[in-house]
Amino acid sequence: MTARHEHDDPPARDTAPGADTDTTPVDTELLSAGLRAGVAHVTAAPDLYARVAEGARARRRRLRTGTAMAVAAACAIAVAGVADPLGWRADTPARTVAADPVGTQGPLPATAPMSAPRGTAVTECPVGHPQPASPGVTDGPMLPPHPGTVLLCVYNATHDPSQNPVNPTITGTVYTGADADRIAANINAVPTTAYTPTGGRCSMLAPRPVLFFRNAAGNEAVAVLDGDCYNMFTDGRVQAQLPQGQHGIGPWLPS
């Protein structure tokens, strides 16, 4: 190590400390002596290095997390800006999509395929959505008043999901324009609850309707349109906010 310690080898002053000021050597000598005497008894804590090491590791973790989030945000902004700079696509005609039955024996994919062929709106049913969406949505309306496009997916398991990972058939319906506005009004009219892993779970054996929506600003929400299901299906396939106090698919959808 090439560290030079000034107390071991004090550097020569280019000028006397007080030479360029209207003070005298007596003043500065007194000042230096007083400062040194005042802290002569001070010693550092012996665990300083351990605390510095811990702080450095924590700082490195924060920087890594921050960098990853910044990159993810930049990518999201770039994709949103190119694909749909004004937010929701409102001109998509209503259509029905059907996903193939998915054989997911074993662990679910870490990220759900929520890619959309048009803009940023979700128009294809995800195989799974293991992360809760919009955790702060309980502070306000779950949906924008004019969401543009919302997607209803119905998951229907073929056997008991409590015993084995389910292989649901998944069908999806895209609602746009006035139909989407009506769904948003219905959903926003009731209190919602954020996803909680301690909430009840629901079998996928019966058809389970789930609503997905996402816009260019990155707002995203998932709603299970069945009060019995609470937040999550038994296999963790979908974790969602729940409009409470309603049961069944009827109250939410346009007739």
Partner: peptide, 18 residues
């Protein structure tokens, strides 16, 4: 780094106190 801190920690903390 550990050796540097061991050698200079008192001096640095004294500056910090001032």
């Amino acid at each position: 780094f550990q050796e540097y801190i061991a050698a200079r920690r008192d001096h640095l903390v004294r500056i910090g106190v001032l």
